[in-house]
Design a protein around this nucleic acid. Sequence first.
RNA 1: GGCCCCAUCGUCUAGUGGCCUAGGACACUGGCCUCUCACGCCGGCAACAGGGGUUCGAGUCCCCUUGGGGUCACCA
Length: 494
Amino acid sequence: MSETRLRFPPSPTGYLHIGGARTALYNWLYARQNNGRLILRIEDTDTDRSSAGSIDGILEGLAWLGIDFDEGPYFQTDFISYHIQAAERLLAAGKAYKCFCSKEELEAKREAALAAKGQLGYDRNCRNLSSDQVAAQEAAGAPWVVRFKVPDRNGQLAYEDRILGRIAADYREVEDFVILRSNGTPLYLLSNVVDDIRDRISHIIRGQDHMTNTLKQVLLYEALEAPLPVFAHMPLTLDSKKAKISKRSHGEIVAVQFYRDHGFIPWAFNNFLALLGWSAGNDQEIFSREELIREFSLERINKANAIFNYRKDDPKFFTDPKAIHINAYYLRHLPIAELGELVREELTQAGLWQEEYAGSQQDWYHSTLELIRDRFHTLKDFTSLGRAYFADDFAVDPKAEAKHLAKNPELGEWLPALADRYQALDRFDLTTSEAAAREMAEQLGVKPGVLINAVRTVVTGQLAGPSMFEALLAIGRERVIQRLRAASRFFSQN
RNA sequence: GGCCCCAUCGUCUAGUGGCCUAGGACACUGGCCUCUCACGCCGGCAACAGGGGUUCGAGUCCCCUUGGGGUCACCA
């Protein structure tokens, strides 16, 4: 039994987009499930697109997701000589040939074919040149490329796809494709296969955009006398208009870095990605890492393309609502200590972290997170919506101010008065703080909600939040009193 | 345009000939809970692209149409 080996071969574009992340994830899941090895290979042979350092964004994205590799990164450019050797072997074996057609000639033929609505492929003009003709061209200094000689066979060229089933096309539909440029450098189709053979890749899981290329690559495997790997072409991720997603047309929203920067929990995002095109076959949608590795299967990957459903210009759903939902789910179900670590990073970044939160105040820290996590969607919410629990420089939501303060100007006096009552309490706990507030409301002849909601606004800055008196305890008596006393500032007109 | 692939609620999907008067999740929405908003719970809206077959019976099999995507580079 040969080893299970997979690879993820991004080209170094400077960032990892969600389609690539999903491909990496599926490869990773399959490798982990089967005790296989996952190889990272940077396909940097593109003359224009590659630049030094542009792989950092990809490495960063993968690291953040927690997708780890067993080998690599290898760089395709380091193996160019192997690719060329392979082409020369094919040439020597008569499985490839030199083509002296100029780009101009080819372009003219192509346009003519287009106008005549004929086939666009290469017309095999140089396929049967005699050795004398070849020698003459070479002597004349004509530049040449190397083309693969597609076998002249009847019937169909086919391969078995683990997701799509049998993929087939007539041999004559496949043109003699170029494997070596006129400057002697190899092309993707060849390099990719040679690398996969050298790396002993057993399973190739990639996007359906490679589906037809695979037919040509199957021919290359055969010509190079290498065993065929298992192919699995996964559906593409499209936008809501069914167009390919790209950073150019969609912006940061398609880069995994965006999700890191917007407070997503890495595994939650993986969980979301996994569901884009795959399902367990039952109703389960939340999977731990171990569960997903166990449950994942190529056969259960959907054939149809998936749509990444984000709504532009909707602040509430700044990305696919399901991604947000899954993230929020993890936010409120993660073991509190684990969440504590994630929030710690956020607080640190925001300059709000106190070392005591990991020491003498750890109980307070954890119970406060427990208290506020329910209505948050991302880790960023802890330093924005939840800022009042960790700092005094929180903003007051204008909507809350309008709804709960502005309507009752008397609150400018009531709230400081409540502060006095809190100051006077022997004990400040859930029972006494609530009793004092309700008692005061009764004496004033207003509904308790009037006072309570005003307190929430002044003390937390938020329109909504946890049970008010729990929040008061979390924020602490001193701060509560301070904030209540300062409440008159909202009514400064008189 | 040629070739290849695909087609269930707005979105992600379950469904492999009878269990489907099509299930779940997100989103939207009604209610309960309540100091607010969430969470939670209960309920609602909402789909088999169309047409032919095959079969006692079709979302499920076949064909056609339509629609969508991919690919056709001396890019990867």
